[in-house]
Each structure stands twice: as C-alpha cells, then as structure tokens.
Nucleic acid binder design. Structure first.
Lengths: 236, 236
DNA sequence: ATAAGTATATTTGTCATACAATAAAACCAA
DNA sequence: TTGGTTTTATTGTATGACAAATATACTTAT
C-alpha cells in the first residue's frame, strides 16, 4: 500500500521577499498613507527603505504593475493606479483558454449581477447611448457585432465597481475570440431582447432588467453550446 | 495660452521586455502548447529561449505568480496553476480600501450573478451543507458570522467559474474587514432570508434564487449604509 | 520677455555574474 | 526494501554597471 502523500500540515511555503514587499506597498493603500493616483518613492529609495535589493524590489513592482495596481514611466516615476484595467483579467482568462462553457457562463454571471446594479443608477446619457446601439443594430443585417457588444458593455460598465470594470472588457474580448465563428445569427431575437432590457433599465427596474438579461443570456448560451456540440460531436 | 499637452496619438508606451515575456508565456496556454498543471522550463532555459536576461525573466515570472497563473518552488520548478486563487483579487481590492459602497456593491454584483448560476446546477451535497449552516446559525444569537459567511460562500463557489472562484473569498474577506463592527444584527431577518434562498436553490429556480438574494442583499446594503451615515454624518 | 532649442540629471529598463537556500533526485548502507 | 546521506538542479537574493527615456533646468535666439 502507498505511503501517505499529503502531509498533515499544508507545507506553508515561506513568503519570498518580493511578496513581502508587495504586502508592504499595498499596506500603504490600506492604511491610507497613500491613495490611488499618488506617487511612490523611486526604486532606489524604496529598496533602501525596505532593505531589499533592487531586483527584488523590481520583481514586486513588476507584479503590482501587471496586477494593474501601479503604472510606471521611465524618468516619470511610479504612481498608484486609479483603475485596474483589463490586462490582468485577460491574462487570468488564459487559464480558461478554449473552454467555451467557462467563458460563456463567466460572462453570464458577470452581466447578470451588473445589469441589476445598472438598473438602479443608470444615467440618462447611458440610456441614450444604449438606444443608439439598438438603432444602429436594427438597420444592419450583417456586421452588427460591434453594436451588440457595445450594448452589453455600456450596461456592464454602468453597474460596475472598480474591481469589475477591467473584467468587463476582458471577458467580452475573450468571448469574441473564443466564439468568433458562431456569432451573427438570430438578428431579430437579439434585437427584441435588447429592447426588452433597455425598457427595463429605463424604468429603473432591477428585477425586470435581470429577468430580461437572463432570458437573453440563456438564449445566447443555448445557441452557442448547441452549435458547439454539433461541431464536435458531444465528446463530453 | 498653453501649448497642447495631449499629443494626437495616445503616446503608446512601448512594452517592456518582461511584459513581452508574459505575453509569450501565456500564449503557451492560449495555443494549447501547455495546459494548467503543466511544468514550465527552468528560468535559465526560458531566458535563453527568449533571449532575455534572467532578472527580466524573473520579473515576468513574479508577475505571473502574483496573478495566480503559476506557482514556483525552489528546486521543484514552475507549474501553471489550475486555479487563480484569491490573492490577486485581494490585492486589487486594496484600491477600494475603505470605500464601503464599493465593497458592498461589488459583493452584491458578484453574488447576484453567481446565485443564479448556482441554482442551475447546485449539488445535493452543497444543499445539505447549506442547510447545516442555517441550522447552526439558528441556534446562536451571537457569534454566527462564521455560518453567515459560509452560507454565502458555498452558494457563490457553487455558481463560480475559474475566474470568479478566487474573487469570492477575496471580496468576502474585504467585506468582513471593512465592516467588522456593523455586523451581527437582525438575526431573525437574516435567517429568514437564508431559508428563502435555500428553498429556491433546492427547487433549482434561478429566478427565485435571484429574487431572494436580491432582497437579502438590499437589506444588508441598506443596514450597512444607514449605520455608516449615522456614524459619519453624511459628509458626501 | 517669450519661445524654442539644448544640456543635464533623474528614474525606470536591461544585463551579467555570483552565491544562498531549498528540496528533489541519486546514492549508499543496513 | 528501507532509511539516511550526498549530490545536484532550481528558485531566491544581492551587487554593480550601463542603457534608454524624459522631466527639468538651462541657454540662446527672436
């Protein structure tokens, strides 16, 4: 019989220096010492303050940069970001590369939550822009993907908080990349759904907005998964 | 009068080498060369393959590590992760440090979307664990936060896809940290809401699950924001 | 005095090298 | 085979030097 493979305690991997530096720097935000938009000390200053070498300090800064927490410019210095941006999420989504269900249902979860919040506070301008996307889409039988995406994007961003803003574009992009071929069908149904969602948002009704978005997303998901299974012969 | 400050083209900040390395490595996932769980070449091999110095290569690896895309062990090598984990999201949430509305509504958006998907596929085991949290909570008048959180966590994870899994714990933790003092009130109402949500999930009814979760979240949000404004005297 | 052009200096970006720390793998002995 | 020891591969940390970009200070010409 095999010996135990998993040790009793979870083998606490000691933190590296650069990880500790990351903690130390974000602590500046948490305790309010610095705020989004503020400038950080230079690399040499920081590395001296924290008693680490510059490479270690730079590994931490590179991490914070790729997380969208800071941005750096040669000679310009380093600043805390005000928004995260979409890049970190786009990278993360690579772990789900090619997994259609993952992408579709991630988008579903995201948009269902955000359309609800959007309905609570959507502005007149956003409503106006929304109706324009519907108009433009209605006069095109082909090549309307752009307006379709814009419709969803406006709603999602309207309901977004900082952490979700970057995620919206990342997921929409991943969606488009993964499903480039399947789209551009069911023009009328899509249009009808969009109009329903728009009316619910105009009424500032979260429940109705959710209901219609769920109907729409269910439709989109079903269409995609059906097309996918037809292509592959339902291997799983 | 001042000269124009913003150039016509958006000053495309040239990518650093470590950013290009990041792109190159995640491309291995996107084109399917490697999969989550697979081992990557060693740092020296990679730095030779990509013709960059080891520090630059390490900055990229550090970034991917902090994004939860890889994990590294001395002598053990580097592997693509299967899950993202909560750490990157916890760091990102530091940008919203102290902003109660941000935290509360981020959690709202997240849970509203996920409870809907959870209702579609929740397992019997998850339902059972859920009902246990309700039971345990019902017999405690104080110190039930643990079971409250567990209830929400099970649901959110049940509806989660890879990208959201880490986010759940990150947001729940941020929520608890930000609102440590305000909680532990309205025991009966909370319990009632949880039971409603549970019943809807048991029925596998996404619409009802959403409805009851929205009611619950609205209740929680209102309670928190009211308590907050009372404390601060609505300065903004 | 103002504007434009130039030089300077600061900050991030990259490289090469060396050694430390960890732990997997190979080896050896009972 | 088992258990302990040695070796070795891999990541972790440090130092130093130079390159590239650009904000700032300075100089010059109009």
């Amino acid at each position: 019989m095999k010996k135990r493979k998993t040790p009793l305690v979870e083998a606490v991997k000691r933190k590296t220096l650069s990880e500790e530096v990351i903690d130390h720097i974000i602590q500046l935000l948490i305790d309010g010492t610095l705020k989004p938009g503020d400038k950080l000390p230079s690399e040499v200053e920081l590395s001296e303050m924290l008693s680490v070498s510059r490479p270690v300090l730079r590994e931490a800064m590179s991490s914070l940069d790729s997380l969208g927490m800071i941005h750096r410019k040669t000679r310009g210095g380093t600043y805390f970001s005000k928004k995260i941006g979409s890049r970190p999420f786009s990278i993360m989504l690579a772990l789900s590369a090619g997994d259609i269900v993952e992408i579709v249902e991630s988008r579903m979860a995201l948009e269902l939550g955000l359309v609800t919040l959007a309905a609570e506070n959507i502005t007149a301008e956003e409503l106006d822009t929304l109706s324009q996307t519907i108009e433009k889409m209605s006069v095109k039988q082909k090549g309307y993907t752009k307006y379709d995406r814009e419709f969803h994007r406006i709603i999602a961003l309207s309901g977004s908080r900082t952490i979700f803003e970057g995620m919206v574009d990342a997921i929409l992009t991943a969606f488009d990349k993964t499903l480039s071929e399947i789209k551009e069908k069911e023009h009328e149904t899509t249009l009808k759904h969009h109009r329903n969602i728009y009316q619910a948002l105009k009424k500032r009704s979260p429940m109705e907005a959710f209901t219609h978005m769920y109907e729409h997303m269910n439709f989109v998901r079903h269409r995609i998964l059906t097309a996918f299974h037809k292509n592959t012969g339902e291997s799983e």
